[in-house]
């Protein structure tokens, strides 16, 4: 099957920095769910932003970065505007900061739709209500008229998911979609996202620091360390990780009903950085 997204040897260097924030990252994404896991500063969000071309001022190099028929390396920004938010979109971490605080939730979703699709206001509204229902909001009519501060975190994130899926994208990048949410609503939001992604055959890149999350909601996982991919695994084989970094991350996680002894601490080695190059 032709991949939706194909990245080969991606490198990103932020302006004014001598270090590469991301180096030598390669992967193909079909209609599947790919997790990118790593600690803060490992470059996982930078990869997501590079794909959406949201890194002004940074140097982005790659042997190949294709999204369907488009070459993301040299498509002009004017054409990118038609792609971003329409055919690929991004779910951000915290609805408190990523929704417009002075616009009603429903209007924001409708606006995102009308930016990319020619539709009357009435049709956009109908489509929005339909989408709010798809993300399992019980009273879409009421929620449509609420401002972001009037909805809970879980509801806000569902509004965000609705907004991003309105235009039927082929690729969704979810950057820590639930880490700002309480554990009681986290699973619910993830299941809604997962259901829609599978049902519509969307390619999903899930960026997260949480191994539990990607284990349950991804097919394949890239583990990143210091800007490089150190290991690629099927999500169900995460326990059989061979790289010491992945093993260290899994072991450092406290577990309910664990032995409560001192947690194994990750011993970082310089060789991890060169070894994967």
């Amino acid at each position: 099957m032709e991949p939706i997204l194909s990245v080969k040897n991606l490198g990103v260097r932020y302006g004014g920095s001598a270090e590469w924030a991301v180096r030598g990252v390669s992967f193909d994404l079909g209609r599947e769910r790919l997790g990118i896991v790593g600690e803060s500063g490992s470059g996982k969000s930078t990869v997501g932003r590079a794909i959406l071309r949201l890194l002004p001022g940074a140097e982005v190099t790659a042997d190949r970065m294709r999204f369907e028929e488009l070459d993301l390396l040299d498509i002009p920004e004017r054409r990118m505007l038609k792609v971003r938010g329409a055919r690929m979109s991004m779910i951000l971490q915290d609805p408190k900061f990523s929704l417009n605080p002075i616009e009603r939730c429903g209007d924001q979703i409708a606006e995102a739709y009308r930016t990319h699709v020619r539709a009357t206001k009435r049709k956009a509204r109908a489509k929005t209500l339909e989408m709010l229902e798809a993300v399992q909001i019980r009273e879409p009519e009421r929620v449509y008229d609420l401002y972001p501060h009037e909805v809970s975190g879980g509801m806000g994130q569902r509004v965000m998911i609705a907004m991003m899926l309105m235009t039927d994208p082929d690729l969704v990048i979810a950057d820590e979609p639930t880490s700002a949410l309480d554990v009681t609503v986290r699973l619910e939001v993830l299941r809604i996202l997962d259901g829609l992604v599978r049902e519509r055959g969307i390619g999903l890149v899930m960026i997260s620091h949480d191994l539990n999350l990607v284990r349950n909601f991804c097919d394949r996982v890239l583990i990143m360390y210091a800007g490089q991919v150190v290991e690629v695994l099927d999500a169900r084989d995460l326990d059989q990780a061979t790289h010491p970094y992945t093993q260290g991350l899994i072991a450092a996680q406290p577990r309910i009903g664990g032995d409560r002894g001192p947690l194994p601490v990750l011993q970082r080695r310089d060789s991890w950085v060169e070894g994967a190059a």
């Binding site: 600690e39 803060s40 620091h209 260290g248 001192p262 194994p264 601490v265």
Partner: peptide, 15 residues
């Protein structure tokens, strides 16, 4: 904090 750093801090607090 990241999980790996969290482990260090939790160990420290326990000690």
């Amino acid at each position: 904090l990241d999980v790996s750093v969290q482990a260090e801090i939790l160990n420290l607090l326990a000690r």
